[in-house]
Design a protein around this nucleic acid. Sequence first.
DNA 1: GACGCTAATTGCATTGACTGCAACTTGCAC
DNA 2: GTGCAAGTTGCAGTCAATGCAATTAGCGTC
Lengths: 201, 201
Amino acid sequence: MPTSAPPSNARARQKRERRLALIEAAQRLVGERGLDDVTVEEISAAAGLSTRTFFNYFDSKDDAVLGIQEIELDAEVRAEFVSGGPSGRLMTDLEALVAGFLRNAAPNIEQGERAMRLMISEPRLVQRHIAWHQRVVGELEALLAERRTARPSPVDDDTIGMVAGLLMRASALAWARSGYEGDAAAHLPEAVAQLRLLLDD
Amino acid sequence: MPTSAPPSNARARQKRERRLALIEAAQRLVGERGLDDVTVEEISAAAGLSTRTFFNYFDSKDDAVLGIQEIELDAEVRAEFVSGGPSGRLMTDLEALVAGFLRNAAPNIEQGERAMRLMISEPRLVQRHIAWHQRVVGELEALLAERRTARPSPVDDDTIGMVAGLLMRASALAWARSGYEGDAAAHLPEAVAQLRLLLDD
DNA sequence: GACGCTAATTGCATTGACTGCAACTTGCAC
DNA sequence: GTGCAAGTTGCAGTCAATGCAATTAGCGTC
């Protein structure tokens, strides 16, 4: 394998640790002083890194506070959805898929919880959070296009994608309301039920 | 009336014109060169105003391109919704309310169309657009809280708000797909139907 | 254990968005 | 035309974010 060298060991570990240090510093400082009274320079210094390095890890200050990272879906979950499974009923399968995303979203549950709390005091973060949803939804729409050949649906990809995004956020909110019991994915069925209830008037 | 002086005439007119000039310049320049290759300074100059004044009209460059403004709902539509009407069925009434918002959203239909087009080439604008939805949804959630006393619902305000946001965006997309026929509100029933279709699996 | 290779960090300079403030201009009422 | 209030502008300053070039550090090889 010439291209994909195994990411060694110490390198990967340091990368993970530095990333976490930045998130931790960002969340702590912003919690203490508020989003606009903390500079990237301060966050970086608190994590023992240079400002320039901060931007090697995150695209923006907000991203660091939310601990945003690339999401990647389980290969098998993905393959199953694309081929029209697991149940064959779109809404049911979508639920499974969203659960897959949610579980991979926040590897560290306390970090996710802190992010949720900060969103309440800093509305701008909600916007960034929703913007991040968009990326997941984009990924998801690609899967939908593939699945469509195996199992067509009269509903637009856009709409399905938005519903998936809605479910992600609704689950997160239900999770927060529950006092952060379990993980966000555990509250997904509740979100679906609420949505059905509303649509049935 | 000591406080609310009638906004005279020439003042209001100029304000409207300058606002439009800024939006027009922003949309034109961004369409020609792309969002990141146009500065606020250039937009302001093209509209014959100072950079500083630009920021008296808009909070950010993106807002100007989208022509974002404060939304305000018809007082009667609002009152009727709060008191549990017009039909008494939440989903139906929500649809009416969203239609009300949509109609007030873009006073100038061509401007809205140009904004939609630019969102396709500049994904960052989609995020801003969705963030703007958030504000509308916030407004809406206040109404929901009021309505709740007149007519309780088992569904959370959050969820209802998100569905409203979804309907707004879905209508806009359907409008775009139709080649911008009529206005966005005209495509709302279509959006609702799609949503129902999906939920019924 | 030195050698080279590549990934990652860092400093530096620069651009441009955005804000606060204070002076100024302009529309409007009397 | 005089005075008031709204709106505009210039100016100085802060800070996020990016590109570039130099340096450092991990890792495999001999």
